[in-house]
Structures are given as C-alpha cells and as structure tokens.
Write a protein that binds this DNA or RNA. Structure first.
Lengths: 214, 214
DNA sequence: AGTATTAAATTAATACTGTCAACTTTATCC
DNA sequence: GGATAAAGTTGACAGTATTAATTTAATACT
C-alpha cells in the first residue's frame, strides 16, 4: 500500500499553520480580511490547498472562534487573584471580561456576532468545549464566593453566573457595536451593572444584614 | 436649463422602493440574501441603478437598520398597557423587547451585530434618531414608574433604563447567537434577569419596606 | 419644434470572493 | 522502479461590490 495520509501530527500541524495565518490576517484587518486566498498567500501555497484541512470557510471561522474563546478564558484566569475575597474576585472577573472584549472588538465580534446555524463536525466540538470552559471560569468563581459564604444568592450558582455572563456580554456587545453613542460611556455603566447584579442576586436578608453590620 | 433632478418626492419615493425590495430579500434570506444585484432584479432595473440613491451597500444597510429600529420601537409601544401599574409596565416592556428580538433573529442581528465604523451622511442621522427613539420608550417607562412612586431607584432613571436595555440585549443577543446551548433556555432566564435588575436597582430601603408591608 | 442640457439608467469592466473538478506533483510502500 | 493515493495546483464558475464610460430620456430655452 502507498502513503495513505500525513501523520496525524503533520496534519494537525498544517491545520495549525493555516489557522495561525488566518488569525494573523484577522488581527490585522478583521473578519473581512480573512479569505482562503489570502491565507494561502501568507502560507505560500495555492488557494485551494487549505480546503484539504478545512472543508470550507465556516469551518475555518469555527476554529478561529474556538481560539478566541480560549483566549478569553486565559484573560479571565489571568485576572483571578486568589488573594482577593471571593466577592471582589467576581467583580474583578467581570471587569476583566469586559475590558478584554472592549480592547479586542474584532475578536469579540468573531465570538459572539453571528447567527446560529446547525453546527457539526470536530471543529464545532472544540468550539463548544472552549465556550463551556470560558463560562466555567465564571461559574466556578460564583460558586466559590457562595461556598465561602461571601455571597448569599437567591438563585442557584449556575443561574447567577449565567446572569453575570449575560450582563457583561450586554455591555461589551453594545459598546463594541457602537450603540452607546448617546453621550454615555461604558466606563460609567460597568461598575453600576456589576453592583446592580450583585445586589439583585443576593438574598434580601443578606442585604439587610450587610447594611445593619458592615 | 434642463431638468436638474427628480422632484425630491420622487427621489425619496424611489429610495423607499429600493429599501422595500432590500427588506423583502432580507426577510426571505437574511443579510447575505441582500445584494445590489438582487435588489435591482426585484425592481426590474439594472444592477447599478440603486447606486444613484444609495452610495454603497453600507448606506443601504444603514437605512435598513433604521427601519428595523423603528419596528422595534413599534413593538415596544404596542406592548405598553396603560392599565398596568408602572412597575409591571416596565416588566412587560422588557419582555416585549426580548420576545421581538428572539422572534426575528435576522432583524435583531442587523440592528446589533456589527462593528462600529465612523458613521456619517443623512442615512446615519436617521439611524441614530430611530435608535434614540427606541431607547426613549424604555427611558420614559422607567421615569414614569419612578414618578408614580412605584419604583424607587438607587440611580438616575437614564442609567436605570440603560441597564435594563443592556440586560435585555444581553439575553437576546446570546440567544440569537446560539450561545445558550448549555442546556438552558432563555425562557427561564428572562424573568430572573428582569427580577434581578429590578431588585438590584431599587433603593435598599424600598426593598425592606416592600418586604415589611406588601 | 428643435436642440442643448443633464439627470437617470445601462453596460462594460475590474477586482475580489467561495467552492468545485480536473489535473499534476510527490512521497511512500511493495 | 513502478503503483498508489494523498497533497497540491490550476482552471473554471457563479457570485459580489464598485467605478467608469456610455446610452437614454426628459426638460427648458431659443
């Protein structure tokens, strides 16, 4: 028999090279700067070669999205400071997410600004995993705060972390899409959102207690 | 001298026809189903004719966005029931926004899923106005609730309405982008988000009072 | 009425894009 | 060395946005 395929390592290596080239183009000029032809030009191969490794542009974008979610996860993990009290840690985490998104609007848009289409294939698996892992950082932090007794939630931790996620995403996505032009900056809104969510999620008795004995 | 231009009415009429054709295509197949060539085909003119009325695709999309915001404003206004107490009215408004967005994901994406680029030209003015008017519905409802003494805010009404807007948008945009695949539906999250925001935005003394004497 | 003027519309052309099919190269196994 | 099959290349098709050159047609003035 003849050679049947690259070593799995080689294939994965080539895929990574293509992905890297695509990411380079993306960082330089956003989503519309990425095309199979430009990617091929960067790699010095012909424009149809990448099709051997990604069945279409959507697959390439899916891989790029997964990478972006991994990046976001790292950003969040890097922001966690174990020295901080759990409550404060959650606040820091939210701020890190928001800052990261605002500083890299293109990447954020890649991750979140798209319509759902039926996902399938190995690339989508990886994307789903990356997404889950990023959200897990948030969920764990909420759970830790609750376990430490620093945060008394009126809902379960998973719901609470989802609501934090939703709030943070609302802020970033509106900012990135330029919907705050009404003379108001996100900077003012971020701490207010975080405070509002914390206060709104806490057991009301906890608030009373906190006010009575700070 | 010869004819210098269409009557302004005629020009605006033609523009409206083009916009309508574009919207028809959009409703049928989303953003990628809209092209100058298809619009022209629908209108029965040549593919470059629309350029007389919209300088480029971005201008056409801007006009479409304004229309979408006007639609959202109508949806919200239609949901307002003066018979309801102001507090409940706000809840209803949030739910109407969220429902509308989820039912028309393409339209919602058109409105919110895009990166900021320097806007200019008359079309952008109209878009900004439509956006402002839609948000104003929210702001007015919050202000009315506060004026009626039904809602005691710990922040100014404009900030409060912005936070409601952010929360609602967070929910819709994540849902529309298919980010809730982790086995949780928006339906559960919507009321929780609304309750959390309301509770978090209220004066803490008001909560205590509400608990003491419901 | 006839003609000059000029906006509106059309056509041709450029430069891209994603994707597929046919073809060539090339590395490995027997 | 020759067979084999994967990897890569090339050509082609059907789109896209956009611009420039050109044609059409309607008006205003002589």
């Amino acid at each position: 028999m003849a050679r049947q395929s690259f070593d799995e390592r080689e294939v994965e290596q080539r895929r990574a090279e293509i992905l890297e080239a695509a990411m380079t183009l993306f960082e330089a000029g956003g989503q519309e700067a990425v095309s199979f032809r430009k990617v091929a030009a960067v790699l010095g191969c012909s424009y149809a070669a990448p099709y051997r490794y990604f069945p279409g542009k959507e697959a390439l974008l899916t891989a790029m999205r997964a990478q972006a979610f991994r990046w976001m996860e790292r950003e969040m993990l890097a922001a966690i400071d174990p020295a901080q009290p759990p409550r404060q840690r959650l606040r820091t985490l939210a701020e890190a997410f928001i800052r990261a998104g605002i500083e890299r609007p293109q990447r954020y848009a890649l991750m979140f600004f798209r319509l759902t289409e039926p996902e399938s294939g190995p690339r989508s698996m990886e994307l789903a995993a990356a997404k889950r892992d990023a959200l897990d950082v948030c969920t764990r932090t909420v759970a830790a705060a609750q376990a430490a007794g620093d945060l008394k939630l009126s809902v379960d931790p998973l719901t609470a972390s989802h609501l934090f996620w939703v709030g943070a995403h609302g802020l970033v996505s509106l900012e990135v899409a330029g919907q705050f032009v009404m003379g108001r900056s996100v900077e003012e809104l971020v701490p207010q959102m975080v405070r509002t969510l914390m206060q709104g999620l806490e057991e009301q008795s906890a608030i009373v207690a906190r006010r009575a004995a700070p």
